[in-house]
Design a binder for these strands. Structure first.
Length: 168
DNA sequence: GCCAACGTTGGC
DNA sequence: GCCAACGTTGGC
């Protein structure tokens, strides 16, 4: 019985859905753009920050929940819901000389940058950054840390519930 | 366009 | 390994 319960628990821990916030500049790729794309899906290429890369490469799993955030725009904030749609794989833009994201130090044998695919689920009302800041239950969100600029940040299950349950 | 906060690069 | 210089992010 004890063994059985432990097995169930560890299985549950392994499969627990994780949550993320991913920033995108709407001029480049908005929630509408992804919803309009084939299979409502896009490759999250172009991330050139090691911490954000590591989240994708080492932690993200298909099915993880994603808050789709619009940044560097007139109304920064959460604009939609999405999910991780693939495991991480080498970002093809690092090998493309014509790409802004070309990295001369990356090789196919030793890729430096990875990305996942993201599938858009729905557009939501725009939840402005100021509203997130004002919400006490979100005080510890990574996004809201002073000076935080990371384009991919973890979201706790409690934060996810707060946002999807009472803000959207 | 400003600027604060970070991250990266490269000389030493 | 230090650290100054430079580049980038991203809200305002």
């Amino acid at each position: 019985m004890l063994l059985h319960r432990n097995a169930q628990l560890s299985e549950k821990a392994k499969q627990a859905v994780q949550y993320w916030l991913m920033k995108s500049e709407p001029d480049e790729c908005s929630i509408d753009d992804v919803l309009a794309a084939p299979e409502r899906r896009t490759a999250w290429t172009g991330v050139r920050n090691y911490q954000a890369r590591n989240f994708m490469r080492d932690a993200m799993r298909p099915g993880d929940g994603v808050l789709f955030y619009h940044s560097s725009c007139p109304e920064p904030g959460i604009a939609g819901l999405a999910e991780v749609a693939s495991k991480a794989y080498p970002d093809p833009t690092q090998f493309d000389r014509a790409s802004d994201y070309f990295d001369p130090k990356a090789t196919r044998e030793r890729p430096r940058w990875f990305n996942v695919d993201v599938r858009a689920l729905k557009k939501t009302r725009l939840v402005p950054l100021a509203e997130l800041r004002a919400h006490r239950a979100l005080a510890k969100m990574w996004l809201l840390r002073p000076g935080s600029r990371l384009s991919i940040t973890p979201v706790s299950a409690a934060e996810w519930r707060t946002i999807t349950g009472s803000l959207l």
